[in-house]
Design a protein around this nucleic acid. Structure first.
Lengths: 274, 274
DNA sequence: CATTTTGGTTTCGATCAACGAAACAGATGA
DNA sequence: TCATCTGTTTCGTTGATCGAAACCAAAATG
C-alpha cells in the first residue's frame, strides 16, 4: 500500500468538519452555556454558519439548546462517546481491577497510561481516599521527561522515542525537572534496570509519582501504571511496600494482556549511548 | 427573541458534519481499528469521501491512523473533550467528594445523575469495592420509570415531566418493572413523602438501587445520587444506615449547590392525580 | 407607550468546497 | 508473473454550503 506522504495537500481538511470540531471544543470548554453571536465572533465566522452547524450538532445530541435562555451547551452524547472509547481499550479493561486493588491497598491515587503512536496518554484513573485527591484527567498527554509514567516509557518503549526526546529541548516545568539530556539518559538507564521510575517535584512541586511498565502479548511496551500522591505520603525514597505493590500490579496487568516473561528476556539496550 | 419552532427545515443539517459524526461514532464503537473500505460500505458512501473526512479528523487528533496497519482508531482528543465537559458540570464537582465518601462508607457503587432538559443523564460514577463492580457508563440516559434515579426525578422534578411519563407507555425491562401508570403514580407519591426511591429487579434482575434527590440554589430539582448493588447487599428492605447515608449525601450536595431548606418548604404536590 | 437595540432564525442566489469516478501505487498472494 | 487487494491522489462537475440581508420577538431604553 502507498508509502507516499500526504505532501502539502491542496486544500487540507473538510472545512465544515473543522468548524464543527471547533464549535464542539468551544462549547465543551466553557463553563457556562454559549451564545451564537459570541461563538461566531470567537471563531471568526458568521452567525448564520454557526447557527446551521449548531443545529446539526444538536440533531445528533452533541449540543443542547436551553429552551429558556436559547443558549447552547454540551449534550451528553459527547461524554458517552468518550466513555465508549475508553471502554473499548483493552488495556483499560484488563487493568481496572488491579488499579482498584492498588488504590485500596496503598490509598494513593492510581493512573494508567497507554502508548498511542508516539505519544503517551492517561487512559484511566482511580481516585485515592484522601479528601482532595490528586489525579490527572483522562485523555491528557504525559510529558515524557517530567513524569514517572513518561520516563518509564522512555526506558522501556522503542529506542527511537527515547532518542527523539533526548535530542529535543527538555522544558523545565518546575525547578527540579530534569533538563540535562545526559542526566536524563543516566536516569533512564537506571529505570530500565530497577524496573520503576519516580518524579519527585518534577511536574508539580510537592507531588511525586511511582510508575512501572506494562507489556502486551507481543512483548512490546504497552503503557504504564503509577501511584500518585504528595511527597509527604510518597517520599523520594519510596517504601519497599509502595515499590513492590506498583510493580506487582504492572506485572499482573501484563500477564493478563498475554505477556509472558519469555517475550522480553532482558531490558533491551541497543545503542542508547552515543 | 424568536419563538418560532424550526418547522420542517428545508434541507436539515450540514451533510459533512453528519458524516463526520457518524464516522466518529463508528470508529469509537468498534473495539478494533477500522479500515477505510469497511467504513465506506458501512456508512454507504465512497472511499474517497471517507478518506477525506478521516484525514480531517486525524488532523485534529480525534482519529489516529496506525502507521503499520494503516487502520484508523479513536484518538484521545475525544476522551479529553468528554472529560472537560464533565469537569465543567458544577454538580459533578460539588458532588465528587460526597460520592467518594458514600462509596467508602457503604462499599456500594455510587451514581450521580443530572437533569438535562427533559432527560436524566448519568454524569459521574464511583466504583464500589467489590471485585466486579456494577456501574453504568457516564453519559447514559436514565429510564424514568425503571430506575431509582429516574423515579426520584419523577417525584421531585417538574410536574410536566411526571405527567408526560405517566401518559406514555411504560416499557417492561424485567418482569418486575412497574408498567401500570396507577401503581407508578402511587409509588411516586410515596417517594415524594419519604424522600428516597429504590428499584429492585426493575432494570436488571438481581440488582437494586437507592436514590435521593439533589436541589440547586433556586430550589429546583437538579439531579440525584444513588447507591447501586446486588440485591444480596442492597435488599428490598434497605437498612436504615443505607437510607440515611444516601439521603445525607444528597442533602450535603444540595447544600453545597446553595440550596437551603427554605427554598422548598414542602414536597410540591399540585395536581398529580386526575 | 413608542422606539431602539439585541440576538436568534430564515431566505436566497452565487460560488467554490466537497463530491464521485477513475486512475494510481504499493502490498499480498496465487 | 499476474491478479487483486486497499489506501491515496487527481480532476472536472455540481449542488451543498455560504454570507448578506431580511425578519422576528423580546428586552432595554427613552
Amino acid at each position: 500500500m502507498p508509502r507516499m506522504k500526504a505532501a502539502a495537500s491542496p486544500q487540507d481538511g473538510v472545512q465544515s468538519v473543522i468548524l464543527a470540531i471547533k464549535l464542539l471544543e468551544a462549547v465543551a470548554s466553557s463553563e457556562t452555556p454559549k451564545r451564537i453571536t459570541d461563538l461566531a465572533n470567537q471563531l471568526g465566522t458568521t452567525k448564520a454558519r454557526v447557527f446551521r452547524h449548531l443545529r446539526t450538532l444538536a440533531q445528533s445530541g452533541y449540543i443542547v439548546q436551553d429552551p429558556e435562555t436559547e443558549r447552547y451547551y454540551s449534550g451528553p452524547q459527547l461524554v458517552l462517546l468518550g466513555q465508549r472509547i475508553v471502554e473499548n481499550l483493552s488495556l483499560v479493561n484488563e487493568a481496572r481491577s488491579e488499579m482498584v486493588k492498588l488504590c485500596a491497598e496503598l490509598g494513593h491515587s492510581v493512573g494508567l497510561s497507554q502508548m498511542v503512536g508516539e505519544r503517551l496518554y492517561t487512559v484511566d484513573v482511580a481516585r485515592g481516599s484522601t479528601p482532595f485527591s490528586i489525579t490527572t484527567l483522562r485523555g491528557t498527554e504525559q510529558i515524557f521527561h517530567a513524569t514517572a509514567l513518561g520516563k518509564v516509557a522512555l526506558a522501556f518503549g522503542p529506542d527511537s522515542l527515547a532518542a527523539k526526546i533526548l535530542a529535543g529541548p527538555l522544558q523545565a516545568l518546575t525547578s527540579e525537572t530534569v533538563t540535562d539530556p545526559q542526566k536524563l539518559r543516566r536516569e533512564i538507564f537506571q529505570i530500565a534496570e530497577r524496573g520503576w521510575a519516580q518524579s519527585p517535584n518534577q511536574l508539580n512541586p510537592g507531588i511525586n509519582a511511582l510508575a512501572a511498565p506494562i507489556f502486551d502479548a507481543r512483548g512490546r511496551f504497552a503503557g504504564a501504571i503509577a501511584i500518585l500522591d504528595t511527597l509527604h505520603l510518597l517520599s523520594e525514597k519510596p517504601t519497599q511496600g509502595q515499590i513492590e505493590a506498583t510493580c506487582r500490579a504492572a506485572r499482573e496487568i501484563s500477564r493478563r494482556l498475554g505477556y509472558t516473561a519469555s517475550h522480553r528476556p532482558l531490558p533491551k539496550r541497543t545503542a542508547k549511548r552515543p
